[in-house]
Amino acid sequence: MTYEPPRPARGLLLTPEDKEAPARVRRLDRLGLGQWPEPALDAFAVHLADLTGSPYAMVNFIGEDHQFFAGLSIPATGPVAKPDGTRPQVGRLLPRDHGFCPHVVVRRKALVLEDVRDYPRFAGNPVVDEYGIRSYLGAPLIDSSGMALGTVCVADVGPRPWGRSGLETIKASAAGLVVQLEGRETDGLTLL
């Protein structure tokens, strides 16, 4: 009898079904969000990256088949190099099955992954291999109607003990931002 070691985690990640996606897309359209980069949201992401000491920070809106980073902060030198020395191309659009934000939106709860390799469900995610992401911290943007519009999140290329303070920071950041986003709709306010 021979022993076969467990196969890598590939294929274990299933992007959760998102029954709210059509309604979310309509809500984002009404708010004028999720279709183009916004300088104020980029500034928010830069602040969040500085606050958490993370190389990557995003304000992410989730559509039916994709994610859009309306706010994005990456290292000034460009994306962090992968172990092979190459630097991935970082854009504002990702398929829905990439990354961890779609899970946050469907779960409607913050997600803390100190080392994604510790979680077989997430270790096989394309952002782990393509972008070298090893840790993630994200919280949903839940508006006053109860809809999860997207996320605010940070990521790092090494394991990170985010701790309770990291969790509290990301949740408070999400709550503060959603108030500003809804203010746009009612008062025509400029973000930040």
Rank of each mutant, 00 (worst) to 15 (best):
T2E: 08
E4N: 10
E4K: 10
P6H: 04
A9T: 13
R10I: 05
G11P: 02
G11K: 00
L14S: 14
T15M: 07
A23T: 12
R24C: 11
R24K: 04
V25C: 09
R26W: 02
R30W: 00
L31I: 12
L33V: 11
G34K: 07
G34M: 06
Q35S: 15
P37I: 03
P39V: 09
D42S: 05
D42Q: 08
A45H: 09
H47K: 11
A49L: 10
D50H: 14
T52S: 15
V59G: 11
N60C: 11
F61L: 12
F61M: 03
E64S: 13
Q67R: 03
F68N: 05
A70G: 07
G71K: 03
G71I: 06
L72Y: 07
L72W: 03
G85S: 08
Q89A: 14
V90M: 13
R92H: 05
L94W: 08
R96Q: 08
D97G: 00
P102N: 08
L111G: 05
V112S: 03
V112F: 00
L113E: 09
R117K: 05
R121A: 14
F122W: 13
V127H: 00
V127M: 10
V128F: 10
V128W: 06
D129F: 02
G132M: 07
G132A: 07
G132K: 04
Y136A: 06
G138D: 04
A139V: 04
S144R: 14
M147H: 06
C153G: 12
V154A: 07
A155N: 02
V157E: 06
W162I: 06
R164V: 11
S165A: 14
L167W: 04
E168T: 01
I170W: 07
I170K: 02
A172N: 14
A174Q: 05
G176A: 11
G176P: 00
L177E: 04
Q180H: 13
E185L: 15
D187Q: 09
G188F: 04
L191N: 09
L192M: 12
